[in-house]
Write a protein that binds this DNA or RNA. Structure first.
Length: 421
DNA sequence: TCTGGGGTCCTAGGACCC
DNA sequence: TCTGGGGTCCTAGGACCC
């Protein structure tokens, strides 16, 4: 069979309860104990990862920490996430995976796709006649090595498209490998609930439920025009994928997630940069809110400069205590300086904050990003010179080492006197 | 279920231009 | 004499993913 006709062989490598697994490496005494990563017990956030020990009690990622506290056994350990450490481990996993195939795409911190078409000869042993079984064996060797060298359990799904591989990896958990052979896709998907298909979330699930469609088999039998009112232009794609079709992205593995993209050769989209913060307690005083906005603007602008991009649009996000959420955005000449962005953000905020209700969350997003051409030293504005020196210090000591927001944080700490050295 | 934080992509109306 | 059509940008909101 030629390369064009041979069905793609794609593996989805997914780390099991990744954040929990890393915490257990750092804190071996957590092994076998119920663990929730997300924040302090009863805090304001949500669960980002729950160990298998607490799942039978209904604790899963996405539920509030308060709810998790109510459901979980008393000896459950709650801990805040340490994202920097998780990134380090994710990187080590990627290096191991790349030993097995040169074709890989990072999908998120704990998930990647691997292409195996064309590798079969490399891995075939004497007597091997079944290439699917060969790749399945290789994937088991890969997860065994990740467990042995890093201590991280992982699962793998193998199929003819990213969708099939992804769904199969979910079925394989925990610590399993699930192969779906070419031709078996529709039968594999049919009994699964619609929610298992990437692209169908809580809203889509509910709307399908209202139409009496609960399984992917039923969805696969739908006509596209029946689903267009619900899913719009995505209807056709969803039906095809529910039928197990191999989409165009399957062979090429698609693009990397823009969050992990270095830059964009075509120059059409560079994604966005955002930071948002839910306050430990709702904030009523507008000046306090403005101080938090200032810190967020500083942070996103710093990240933009690190990436070497300038933004043409800023979006303010405001969530009141009663959860009413609004966004306000403004476009302007491309910049990556908080000295340009902050006045715009403050004007947006003062206009948008029409209620006296306390504020729960603020967020800042930079979008409409552009890569400026190389600049001569002489062309740098005063602002840009200032940022260069500040960012140089941050490169050594981190974001919080210097800056207006950092100064205010230090003030607050010494004011409260709660911090001792 | 009193609901995080980082993203992507889609929709839809209005402005503005040709 | 109230009237076109297409293209593109801006703005606001929402679904979804991990």
């Amino acid at each position: 069979m030629s390369d064009e006709l041979r069905p793609a062989r794609i593996a989805c490598l997914d780390l099991d309860t990744f954040f929990v697994s890393v915490e257990r490496i750092l804190h071996p005494e957590l092994a076998g104990r119920p663990v929730v990563v997300g924040g302090a017990r009863g805090g304001r956030g949500v669960v980002t990862a729950a160990s298998y020990e607490v799942r039978p009690f209904g604790v899963r990622s996405g539920i509030s920490l308060r709810e998790a506290d109510r459901l979980a056994p008393k000896d459950t350990v709650f801990m805040p996430p340490s994202h920097g450490v998780y990134s380090d481990y994710a990187h080590k996993v990627r290096l191991i995976a790349q030993d097995f195939t040169p074709e890989s795409r990072v999908a998120s911190i704990d998930e990647m796709y691997l292409g195996f078409q064309g590798c079969e000869e490399l891995y075939r042993r004497a007597g091997d006649v079944d290439d699917d079984a060969t790749i399945e064996r290789v994937c088991r060797e890969m997860t065994a090595r990740i467990l042995r060298e890093l201590g991280l359990p992982a699962s793998v799904g193998i199929g003819s498209s990213k969708t099939i591989a992804k769904v199969a990896s979910g079925v394989a958990k925990p610590a399993g490998v699930r192969l779906v052979r070419a031709g078996d896709e529709a039968a594999f998907l049919a009994p699964l609930p619609v929610r298992k298909l990437p692209g169908i979330g809580p809203v889509g699930e509910e709307r399908l439920q209202a139409m009496g469609i609960a399984t992917l088999g039923r969805l696969a039998a739908c006509r596209v025009d029946e689903l267009e009112p619900i899913f719009g232009v995505r209807a056709g794609d969803l039906v095809l994928r529910a039928r197990g079709a191999t989409d165009a992205s399957a062979v090429l593995l698609g693009r990397e997630r823009p969050a992990f993209r270095e830059h964009d050769p075509e120059g059409e989209t560079l994604g966005s940069i955002s930071n948002e913060r839910t306050f430990a307690e709702d904030v009523r005083d507008p000046r306090d809110v403005e101080a938090r906005l200032c810190a967020l603007v500083e942070r996103v602008c710093w990240r933009a400069r690190k990436r070497g991009v300038k933004a043409r649009t800023v979006t303010l996000k405001l969530r009141y205590a009663d959860f009413e959420t609004l966004t306000r955005s403004r476009s302007f000449a491309a910049t990556s300086s908080e000295l340009d962005v902050l006045p715009i953000v403050l004007a947006l905020y003062r206009k948008a904050r029409t209620r006296s209700t306390a504020v729960r969350l603020v967020g800042i997003q930079l979008s409409n990003l552009h890569e400026p051409g190389a600049q001569l030293e002489l062309e740098l504005t005063t602002h840009e010179r200032l940022h260069r020196s500040v960012d140089g210090i941050r490169a050594k000591y981190g974001f919080d080492a210097v800056g207006a927001a950092a100064a205010r944080r230090r003030d607050r700490r010494s004011d409260s006197g709660s911090r001792t050295r």
